[in-house]
Design a protein around this nucleic acid. Structure first.
Lengths: 139, 139
DNA sequence: ATCCTAAATAGTAATACTACTATTTACAAT
DNA sequence: ATTGTAAATAGTAGTATTACTATTTAGGAT
């Protein structure tokens, strides 16, 4: 938490109660909250907060690499704080559940390939889609 | 085109004029149309088509692996027909343009790693985000 | 050609997400 | 402590996407 605040401070961003509440909500919700769930949580601390504020702050945190956005096809997006361990996600297309995959197949060589096309890569997003254990067993 | 129709036929899906128009629109729009652009194109052939139909058919084609959905953060999604060559995309976070990257870093070993967690993987989505050549030159 | 049934559709409603504007506020400089 | 300024916010509006329902239709069986 303190690390996040320090990082924002260092980049010249202001620390408002709403922003603090969004970060707190991310910490407390833990596993993959939706924007609506975050809004509900934040409202406990700041009842007048607008949904716009949730998305604006999420967007900022994503741009800074402090939050990951995970796309659940047909179910919207969910979020998580970036841990020190860069990783990706397995998403079940049947029940919509997400699991972490502590692994990243993207190498420095891959980024060079992209650079050959003139791109300067700053991040990437990778999700695997399939059927989770329980959905496979359930048929 | 004929290949697409054959594949749909084989899986028991019906071939309606609207569905045909959606596929035609995907072929004609070529490079990364949005859902709205596809709707406009399809309306030329079928004026009463609903947006729902566009999304429903895109969704089906995506599930069958015949269409890719590319997420442009803060700009919605765009689509493309899957070519015979599996690939991913570079997306410029400044101007929103997408380019193909004829390359995929995901190997069979990576999929095995996922399987260890009980998942049966059927697809994956990978996008690289950064700055394209012209945006880098423009500062 | 007619009938049957599940798939597909149009139209509408609901939800998710983004954009805009006037006002407020953090925080740095005085 | 006061002031100035750009960032951030609430509230609202607009766009994107998904869900629901009654009706229509493609395509196989008769």
């Amino acid at each position: 938490m303190d690390e996040l605040l320090k990082e924002l401070r260092a980049k010249g961003y202001k620390m408002t109660p709403q922003r603090r509440a969004v970060i707190t909500a991310l910490l407390e919700c833990g596993k993959f909250p939706t924007a609506q769930q975050l809004l509900a949580k934040v409202k406990q601390a700041a009842p007048d907060v607008s949904l716009d504020t949730i998305y604006r702050n999420l967007s900022l945190l994503i741009d800074l690499g402090l939050v990951n956005e995970i796309h659940l096809p047909g179910r919207g997006n969910v979020f998580e704080l970036t841990t020190n361990q860069h990783h990706h996600h397995l998403v079940c297309v049947r029940c919509g559940k997400a699991e972490c995959l502590d692994y990243c197949p993207v190498s420095a060589q891959d980024l060079e390939k992209a650079a050959e096309q003139g791109f300067e890569i700053i991040s990437h997003s990778l999700e695997f889609y399939g059927y989770c254990r329980s959905c496979r067993l359930a048929g």
